[in-house]
Amino acid sequence: MQASTLTKTKQKTWGGGGVKPLDAAYGKLMMWFFIVSDALTFSGFLVAYGFSRFKNIDSWPIADEVFHHFPFLHGVDAPMYYVALMTFILIFSSVTMVLAVDAGHNNDKNRVAFYMLLTIIGGAVFVGSQAWEWKNFIKGEYGAVEIQNGEILQFYDIKKDKRIPIDDFAVLQSQERVTHDDNVGIWYQSEAKLPEITLSEVMEGFKTNSAITVRVEELNDKGQKIILSREDAENKLSSATRVVKGANLIRNEYGNPLFADFFFFITGFHGFHVFSGVVINIIIFINVLLGTYERRGHYDMVEKVGLYWHFVDLVWVFVFTFFYLV
């Protein structure tokens, strides 16, 4: 019987007229249609990312240098461990979801509820982790300087043979310039917040410390960023226009603006899927607790949201590979 009876009255939800093509319930088939089209949407995004990356193949930011934070380990270089943990959390919440579907096949209400709860918790932890990842990405760590042609220059300490944050070498100067707010002036317009460290402070620090040079966006044969000599660095810096700290949609300290744009867009779109998945899971969880599916006689709804949840996991597997590994 396909048409599902909601209550004792003859109130029916339309279910394809009782016909079961391909031996799959109507709702499940529709969920599969949605998943196939959504999979094509995501592959469109990821392929667009690949396009931009191939277009800038010799100057793309290095993911290991960008994503190397781990909670409670400050300043420890831990590339990828955190996203690997996030991947594991999502796969694990996928497993609890299958277990819920399996318990649903046995009409075991308590176990369905228990596993659904675990799935919701896993999803919430994942969304939280992604928010943390975004926070680190937006805040930035080292800071950089943008020059006239839009190139990003990062600073490098030759003596210590590692990157140096602009905060560490900039020579602080007294400032007369304050951020212009909309309550002063007559046109009620404000400007973007001024950077905490100004360009002239960075340039002054660069002049006084001879161990500092810059790294350009271009990669060498080994896939590392090219480090310029001190004279070349001075030349490049002569056309510096602004200090860049962190990331937004227009410019970021990691290099190509498209890198941040795709990061925000793809992980954001995926995060939105996870978030809506959690919301849908909560709705189904409440329905399970209320006994809706117990009365209906089957737990097909759990199976349908399960499909969606696994799909979200599946997409993350690809995002993980193409954003963090490759």
């Binding site: 690949g50 396009f51 931009s52 990356r53 191939f54 277009k55 193949i57 010799d58």
Partner: peptide, 8 residues
């Protein structure tokens, strides 16, 4: 990807 490397 082909188009991307061509533009490069």
């Amino acid at each position: 990807l082909w188009e991307g490397s061509y533009i490069f």
